[in-house]
Amino acid sequence: MTSKKITVFALLAVVLAAFGLGAYLYQQRVQNSQMDKVTQQQARLVRMHSPVFGPQNAPVTIVEFFDPACETCRAFHPVVKGLLAQYPNEVRVVIRYAPFHQGSDQIVLLLEAAKRQNKYSPVLDAVLAAQPQWADHAQPNLRVAFQAAEQAGLDINKAIEDAQRPELAAALRQDIEDLTALEVTKTPTFFVNGRALPSFGREQLTALVAEEVAKARR
């Protein structure tokens, strides 16, 4: 190999290394900034109106910023349920809404209306199961989601009426205010007892929950 060819490879390696290092440093910076916000504003993680799965006084709280139209949230739904089943006494999950997609806010209000009929969990399951049919990001077909909710046992007329209640809109506004303050930009975003995942992924979530549960059991 000539020195010119070696130069080309060496420079390519330098640029790739610089990119990798820069990406790492930038992500650290973003995460540190978010952790500062979370530590300073603990109250923004859980609100009175937030739906909760699992025991109210559980020592480990998973806060999930959730968008009903988000595919990854759908994929994480069984993971989160699995954690609840695995630690029935130690873990609770608090749902916060991050309606980043078009039409998501309507589905959030539908879910909140379902909560008033004590149908939150089956309606959430049904809406997520039907997500591929309704949650086109450019043209969501909300009627399909409403039908899925009705099939899950929701009194749809009452739910549509309840969805107009100002306190539901206020709760959603509060969630959006909180997620903005906590710099949540992606869904799902998880905080386990106020700690962010070191990096996004199902193993990272499972490991962080296991760690916090072990702390609580001690």
């Binding site: 990119f19 820069g22 990406a23 930038y26």
Partner: peptide
Amino acid sequence: LFIGEVML
């Protein structure tokens, strides 16, 4: 790519 994929 950094602006798009890392800074999103």
